[in-house]
Design a protein around this nucleic acid. Structure first.
Lengths: 251, 251
DNA sequence: GATATCGTTTGACCTGCATCAAAGTTTTTT
DNA sequence: AAAAAACTTTGATGCAGGTCAAACGATATC
């Protein structure tokens, strides 16, 4: 265990955060590259400077904040969003444990979106200078960082496809399938999930109004494809969902 | 011209491409980091392995191709696009001289979109292994690569905002302003441009049908905001365009 | 435990853009 | 130079999803 987190410009820091090293973190497979030997893995522990807790509803960072660090989510759930001057908001993503948040800040040294905790969260603070320095030393880490950024680019492209070409029900089907797939990769059920976001946030992400989201949920439910009770969703017929998302593929 | 060039594993390479070194390239400020001394700049020339010409209508790479290199556009104009099995296409971006293309391929070692030349083009082939190797040696290059990827992430976020929250005319206004701004950074007029893409491609990028694009052009034209004649566009009242794009900001 | 607040559902109606259609223009092919 | 193909414009009509409204359910506050 290392010393505790000290200086943090931002609020909601744990007073004495017990630091968990990457080398012994059970999320390692998700946020760190594989194929490290024990010795290198230890050196890698120094990417993470501190930990930080963010309570539900609080911001990890906001548009305009100076960019210094990437954040690896240990626990909790975030949304990232941007908004226009006239108040329209676009949710650009939902992030869960093991995912990296803050990449938007690199280009201009300032964040260009808000990151809001949708449930109490705990993140590893990785000063970007550390990331870059260690990346130079460890090609496998370097490659990993590149892949994470590339993955985000590809993800956003596919959201563009959703927004530009898909109808409301296709969007929601794709959304649910994506969410449950990511949760499954983290050891959760592939058929049940509890949404951490409101209908309005889902709608903002998918470019539709909350009423339309609600209607699509109801429709799926009426058709016996899912079971919904508020935030709880059970996927009864995953193939039917896949069929909606994409008429061609799938059984 | 423009015959069917179907099979092309590694197509359209210039046989004996006269290699232009980064160190003497007039696009250097656009695609290479600044703050290099002459000696380092020479070492940096080795990022670029070869050059490649792509004729109008041909693909620089396609979805599924093995990823080996990034491409810096020297001349020409590209679109990148993805498509669903049932044939719907989403243009994910338009790229011009000085911009880097191919970042989508890093995450999976395969490209996830098609890159189509919208006019005869000439690109620098930068094997990604070279990029990574030199990045480890030159922190300023490393930072540059990170910024390019982050910029793409931020760009896509703002397209999500367009697609999710803006109406047809706002989208087209934003599109025109963005295009002319990038052209201006390359020494072209800030008020006149020649579109390299069809109404349908604009529509695909902006999530609207070609007829809607055409009507929006006509409307802007009727209002004296722009002058349009086919692919030629002259921006008469840039402030009016900005006002449409964003009611709040601007004079 | 009562009350206020916030989120969700559902219905009725409306509109911005899609769709369908046709004619005009430019570019490519022969 | 004529014909064909590709792209664009414009009009008429339809509908998916937005808007407005109201009631209900869940959660937080006192």
């Amino acid at each position: 265990m290392n010393k505790e987190a000290t200086i943090e410009a931002m609020p909601a820091t744990t007073p004495a955060s017990f630091k968990v090293a990457c080398s012994s973190c059970n999320l390692r497979e998700l946020c760190m590259p594989i194929g490290f030997n024990a010795e290198d893995m230890h050196k890698l522990d120094s990417v993470v400077a501190t930990r930080r807790r963010v309570k539900q509803g609080e911001l990890l960072f906001r548009n305009g904040d100076a960019f210094t660090s990437l954040f690896a989510i240990r626990t909790g759930f975030f949304k990232t969003c941007i908004s226009t001057v006239d108040g329209r908001e676009q949710v650009t993503g939902f992030q869960m444990a093991g995912e990296i948040i803050g990449l938007d800040g690199i280009v201009s040294d300032h964040h260009s979106c808000n990151a809001v905790a949708l449930e109490d969260a705990d993140v590893c603070v990785m000063p970007f200078a550390n990331v870059e320095e260690l990346s130079r030393e460890f090609p496998v880490l370097q490659r990993h960082v590149h892949k994470i950024m590339s993955r985000e680019i590809v993800r956003e492209s596919s959201v563009m496809m959703l927004l530009g070409n898909m109808r409301a029900e296709e969007r929601l089907a794709a959304f649910l399938l994506n969410l449950v797939q990511r949760l499954h990769a983290r050891g959760f059920s592939q058929s049940e999930l509890t949404l951490r976001m409101t209908r309005e946030e889902i709608g903002s992400y998918l470019g539709m109004k909350l009423e339309t989201v609600s209607r699509a949920f109801s429709k799926f439910s009426d058709e016996g494809i899912i079971e919904v009770k508020q935030r709880y969703v059970k996927i009864i017929k995953p193939d039917a969902l896949k069929l909606i998302f994409n008429p061609e593929t799938c059984a």
